[in-house]
Every structure is written in C-alpha cells, then in structure tokens.
Amino acid sequence: VIINAAGILHTPEFMPEKKLADLQYQQMMETFRANTFGPAMIIRHFSKLLDSERGVMAILSAKVGSIEDNRLGGWYSYRASKAALNMFVKTAAIEINRTKPRAVLIALHPGTVNSKLSEPFRGAQIGRTPDAAANDMLGVLDTLTAADTGQFYSYNGDRLPW
C-alpha cells in the first residue's frame, strides 16, 4: 500500500481564492506544484513498486476537485489542482492496468480532518481526528479490487463523481 497525503490549501502567504479577482499566478503555481505535479511524480516513480498481485496506491484528493459536484465555486487553485490530479490518477491507472492488471490506483477524499489544512475553516469543530480519518481510509483501501482502479472514492467508501 502506498498513500500520498501531501498537499496544500493555504500557506502563511495566501488563502484560497473566493473570486476571480483574487487569482494570483504565484499562488496557482505553488498550489499546482504541491497538489498536482508532486503527486504525479510520486505516481511515476512509485507505481513501479506496486505488487502485481494486489498493490494499492491511493493519492489523496478532495471532493471539491470534483467538477460535477462543484456547487459553491471559489477556491479556484485548490479545486483546479485537485481536478487535474484526478485526471493524472485516472490516466495513470489505465496505463498501469496494462502491465499490472491486479494493481489499484485511486484518488481518495479524506473528508474534513482536524488538521492545519482545515484549521482556518472550522476544521477543529467539523473535522474528524487524524486517527479516525486514517482508519476510515484504510478501511476503504481494504475493500478495493482491480475493478476499482482509476476511480475516485470518499473516506466512507462512496464513489465520487469526477
């Protein structure tokens, strides 16, 4: 099992954009670097290590990266970087399936977790503990089969729309 949990939503220098007028090139680049390009390189280098009998790789994404599920707008860079990440996962899963048909590569939404990432957004009040989140996600990973590769799942086992 390989899990990539790296990503950013905000830094001391920026918060998620609420409107188009808030877009800044540097913020978009930093967000895509962490949320899209880095995980893509993790997939590139570590997918070779997946066991051909049942290797599982989960790349943490976010439900707000679902294009179909976007009802609120805002958070432009974060949403777009996670949508792009989802495309990398889907595309890589197709390629990996050719040589390792029993391996599983998915995008996984952890939900709101009480962490520094969610702290400015009431994460401590509405989020789950990191231990609970990890247990939930591991529970989902335990149920996956090769038929699930290239999909987008939530921590509760629901399949999410792209």
Results as ranks from 00 to 15, higher is better:
Ala107Tyr: 11
Asp148Gly: 07
Phe14Asp: 01
Glu119Ile: 00
Ile59Phe: 01
Ser61Pro: 06
Val89Ile: 12
Ala103Val: 11
Ser66Lys: 05
Asn86Gly: 10
Gly157Tyr: 01
Gln27Leu: 05
Asp142Trp: 07
Ser52Leu: 09
Arg44Ala: 09
Glu68Trp: 01
Asp131His: 10
Ala62Glu: 07
Arg159Ser: 10
Ala134Met: 06
Glu68Lys: 08
Glu17Gly: 08
Gln151Arg: 15
Ala132Ser: 12
Asn156Gly: 02
Ala103Lys: 02
Thr149Gln: 12
Pro16Gln: 01
Pro39Met: 11
Lys116Thr: 08
Asn97Phe: 08
Gly7His: 03
Ala134Glu: 10
Met137Glu: 08
Gly55Gln: 03
Ala62Asp: 01
Val140Ile: 12
Leu20Gln: 03
Leu72Phe: 15
Ile8Gly: 07
Asp158Thr: 10
Ile126Phe: 08
Ala6Ile: 11
Ile2Glu: 03
His45Gln: 12
Ala134Gln: 07
Thr91Phe: 03
Ser154Lys: 11
Leu160Gln: 10
Ala84Met: 07
Asn70Asp: 14
Val104Ser: 02
Asp51His: 13
Leu20Tyr: 13
Gly111Leu: 07
Leu105Thr: 00
Arg122Thr: 00
Ala132Asp: 13
Thr149Tyr: 10
Ala134Cys: 14
Gly157Gln: 03
Met15Thr: 14
Met15Gln: 15
Leu49Pro: 05
Arg71Met: 13
Asn97Gln: 14
Pro161Cys: 07
Met41Val: 07
Ile67Ser: 11
Lys90Gln: 14
Leu50Cys: 09
Ala58Pro: 05
Arg44Asp: 11
Gly73Glu: 10
Lys90Val: 08
Ser47Met: 12
Trp75Ala: 04
Asn156Ile: 13
Lys19Gly: 00
Gly73His: 11
Lys82Pro: 10
Ala133Lys: 04
Leu50Arg: 02
Leu49Ser: 15
Leu60Pro: 02
Tyr155His: 14
Phe37Ala: 11
Arg128Gly: 00
Ile8Tyr: 04
Leu9Gly: 08
Gly150Tyr: 09
Lys116Cys: 03
Met29Asn: 12
Pro101Gln: 14
Ile59Leu: 13
Ala93Tyr: 06
Ile3Thr: 10
Ser66Trp: 12
Ala84Cys: 09
Thr31Met: 09
Ser61Thr: 07
Arg44Cys: 05
Leu49Arg: 15
Ile106Asp: 06
Leu49Glu: 15
His109Gly: 02
Trp162Arg: 04
Asn97Trp: 08
Asn86Pro: 10
Gln151Pro: 06
Ile67Asp: 06
Ala5Gly: 14
Ala147Arg: 13
Gln26Tyr: 00
Lys18Phe: 06
Val113Phe: 03
Thr143Lys: 14
Glu53Ser: 14
Gly55Arg: 10
Ile94Lys: 11
His109Arg: 04
Phe46His: 08
Ala103Asn: 06
Ala6Glu: 09
Tyr153Thr: 01
Arg98Met: 12
Met41Lys: 15
Asp136Ile: 04
Ser81Asn: 07
Gly127Trp: 07
Ala103Met: 09
Phe46Trp: 10
Asp142Glu: 15
Gly139Val: 10
Tyr76Glu: 06
